[in-house]
């Protein structure tokens, strides 16, 4: 029994959905953030697996760029969380509902 790329794809789908559930169900901004990172990682895994199947290095280059963007995102996102926390003394996103219609 060989491991086909499909296996990796299915695994990343599962990881992606778990990350999605973290965003939908958790209130802690930090955990939601981690869930985003998890989803990014899941997608990265599909890139690498597909690149292997298609004999292309572009998948790995994509992973590289996604990581750079994710790093930038983490920097700014965590800074925002810290700034919000300094003002509101909470990391719960449900407290931040000022944009209610």
């Amino acid at each position: 029994m060989t491991v086909t790329p499909g296996w990796y794809m299915a695994l990343s789908a599962v990881l992606f959905v778990i990350g999605l559930s973290g965003i939908l169900l958790r209130r802690n901004a930090l955990v939601m953030f981690m869930s985003v990172e998890l989803m990014l990682n899941a997608v990265n895994l599909t890139f690498v697996a597909a690149g292997r199947e298609l004999l292309s290095i572009d998948g790995q280059v994509s992973v590289f760029f996604v990581m750079v963007v994710a790093a930038a995102e983490v920097v700014v996102g965590l800074a925002i969380i810290v700034a919000v926390f300094r003002r509101r003394k909470t990391a719960s996103v449900d407290e931040l509902a000022e944009l209610r219609g």
Partner: peptide, 25 residues
Amino acid sequence: FAAGVLWAGRLVWVTGAPAGVVPVD
């Protein structure tokens, strides 16, 4: 969502022609 993705992948996960001939380094 999960059902949709897994259902979509039941036949083929990766489409498209191979871009090269040698395994990826």
